[in-house]
Every structure is written in structure tokens, then in C-alpha cells.
């Protein structure tokens, strides 16, 4: 049995068409770029694609996303100009759910390499303030160069462990909202990286859960009352998804809020392996690769009390 089949068999009861799910997981993911509205427009980019003979297919649910049928999109003029950023379709969803406004002060707790940070900045018309944090020094250069190439002028990059993030260097006490796109086991990235499951173990899921919970808890404590925190992972395991959110709900400082997605998704689980969760967990969303031919994702939208 392959790694995929042996590990993913635990999700069989959650899926209507498990064999289709497995098939899709074994198919490489198309390369998708997001148009960066800080530096260009959809119209300018589409004309450029056609004039430069860059073969693209627009993505049907989001006018800013294009599947690009070119082996190295980074080696094109629009990329050099900062008009494009390679970003999977599902990866563009958490910022849309957070839905920041121009002028907001936003914390991106785990931000390298900055795909979602730059998308947040674009959604804010590059107006406001984003603190883009990451704990991994080796991932800083990519974060920095992406934000600079994409023309983001409202971000401060900090290097710290999000669990202990301090607002001391800044002159404000709370964020309007936070994106908590945590490190995870990455099961949903299997189509992009066939080796994603090599280090998979139940033990690893639980140690990630601990880290994810502490980061999420820090975000809840740093966001103003009534503010939004979006929690997301690119994995299927309930240990890293519903169980983390269930635990944070039980602390009583936030509630889950409903949201709609422009693509097909499934509700969050309210039970896993005999453990019952808070019933509001069905308001979270799971995106399985076979639903929209994408990677996998989990998203929860929380409101701070």
C-alpha cells in the first residue's frame, strides 16, 4: 500500500467518493498565479498574457487567479514587474475570509513566504498596517523579497515565535484582526509535494496541535474585542483542525462565526473517533482536493469576545 493510501484511509468515512479523492491526490496540481492589484489590474495582466503568448486559463471562481501553463512563470516579465504571485487557489481563501479593510491593523502570525500577507495587503489597497511574523529565519528572505517585489509598503516583518509574540515594539495594544495560517502536517499539499507525508505520524499531529493551539490562543489575546481571527491549515487531520478550534472555544474567549465560500466545501466535523466537539464546529469549512480540483484546506472564522 502506498503512503497516501495507508495514511488517508482514516478519512474514508468522511468522504462520499473516497476513490476519487485518492485519484485526485495522486494527480499533480496545476500552477496558479494571483494578479497583484497593488501593481497592476486584471485587464493589464490579461493583455500582457496574450501579447507575451503566456498560456493561461482563468479560474472560474476568482477573477484574480489564473492557471498558467508555462513551466517557469517566475521567468516572465509580468512576474519581474511584481504583477503576479504563484499561489494555489485554496491558499487564496483564508485572506478572503478574513476580509480586511483598508486602514486595518492586521497580524499575520505565520507569514513566510508571504503569499497571504501580500494578498491581505492587496485587499487593503496597501493601506493600513500588517505585522508579518515568522519564527523561521531561513524563511525570512523569501518573505521579504516577495513583499518588496509585490510593492507592499504597509508591512513590518518580525522574527519571533508567534506563541510569545510581543507588541512592545509597536505603539498599539491590539490588532483589528489576525490570520493564523499555522505550520501543519501538510496532508493537503500532497499534489504539490508527493513527499509531504514522509514524516507523518500520529505523534507529530499531536505535537503540531499543541503548537497550533498556542499560536491561535496568542492571536485571540492580541485581537480586539469583536475582531476576527481566521485559523487555517493545509491539512485534513481533525487533530490539527477541529480539535484545535474546539479547544480554543472551550476557553471561552471567542466564538465561531459562519461564512460562505465561492467554491465547494464540507462543514467542519462535530465528532472524530468517538470524541464530540462543540456543535458550532460545523461552521468551519473543509476543502477536499476532489471537490474543486485543488489542494486541501481547513478554515475557521472566529470572533473575539
Amino acid at each position: 500500500m502506498s503512503e497516501i493510501t495507508s495514511i488517508f484511509s482514516r478519512y474514508e468515512p468522511l468522504l462520499e467518493d473516497y476513490s476519487k479523492f485518492l485519484d485526485v491526490c495522486n494527480t499533480p496540481l496545476p500552477y496558479v498565479v494571483r494578479i497583484n492589484t497593488i501593481k497592476t489590474t486584471i485587464q493589464k495582466s490579461t493583455s500582457a498574457f496574450s501579447d507575451l503568448s503566456i498560456d493561461v486559463t482563468p479560474c472560474d471562481w476568482n477573477p484574480l487567479l489564473f492557471q498558467i501553463n508555462n513551466s517557469s512563470p517566475g521567468n516572465t516579465l509580468p512576474y519581474l514587474l511584481g504583477w503576479l504571485h504563484g499561489q494555489e487557489e485554496v491558499s487564496s481563501i483564508p485572506p478572503l475570509v478574513l476580509d480586511p479593510l483598508p486602514g486595518d491593523t492586521v497580524w499575520d502570525a505565520c507569514s513566510s513566504p508571504g503569499s497571504k500577507t501580500s494578498q491581505l495587503a492587496a485587499l487593503m489597497d496597501d493601506t493600513g498596517f500588517i505585522v508579518a511574523n515568522d519564527s523561521n529565519l531561513r524563511r525570512m528572505p523569501a518573505l521579504r523579497s516577495n513583499l518588496e517585489r509585490l510593492g507592499v509598503t504597509i508591512a513590518a516583518i518580525t522574527h519571533s515565535d508567534a506563541r510569545h509574540f510581543s507588541l512592545k515594539p509597536f505603539d498599539f495594544n491590539t490588532f483589528d484582526s489576525a490570520l493564523v495560517d499555522v505550520p501543519c502536517s501538510g496532508e493537503g499539499t500532497i499534489r504539490k509535494n508527493p513527499r509531504a507525508l514522509q514524516k507523518w505520524s500520529l505523534k507529530q499531529l499531536f505535537s503540531l496541535q499543541k503548537l497550533q493551539f498556542s499560536i491561535l490562543r496568542r492571536a485571540i489575546s492580541l485581537v480586539k474585542s469583536g475582531g476576527t481571527v481566521v485559523y487555517s491549515t493545509c491539512t485534513f487531520s481533525p487533530e490539527e483542525n477541529e480539535m484545535v478550534v474546539d479547544k480554543i472555544l472551550s476557553e471561552g474567549n471567542c466564538t465561531i462565526v459562519p461564512f460562505n465560500l465561492p467554491i465547494v466545501s464540507s462543514p467542519g466535523l462535530i465528532e472524530w473517533e468517538g470524541i464530540q466537539f462543540n456543535p458550532s464546529l460545523n461552521l468551519c469549512k473543509r476543502i477536499w482536493p476532489n471537490q474543486n480540483n485543488t489542494g486541501g484546506f481547513f478554515i475557521a472564522k472566529l470572533e473575539v469576545k
Binding site: F129, R144, V152, T153, A156, H159, P169, F170
Partner: peptide
Amino acid sequence: WVFKGNLSKSIQIEALGLR
């Protein structure tokens, strides 16, 4: 570096806006 906005004091971080 250029940054859109303002901060009230010097700050020790990795980046602020763009070079």
C-alpha cells in the same frame, strides 16, 4: 526604507515597507 504610515519610535524588526 519607505513605509506607508508612521510609527512613533525607532523599532528593531526585520523589515519595514521596502528598501
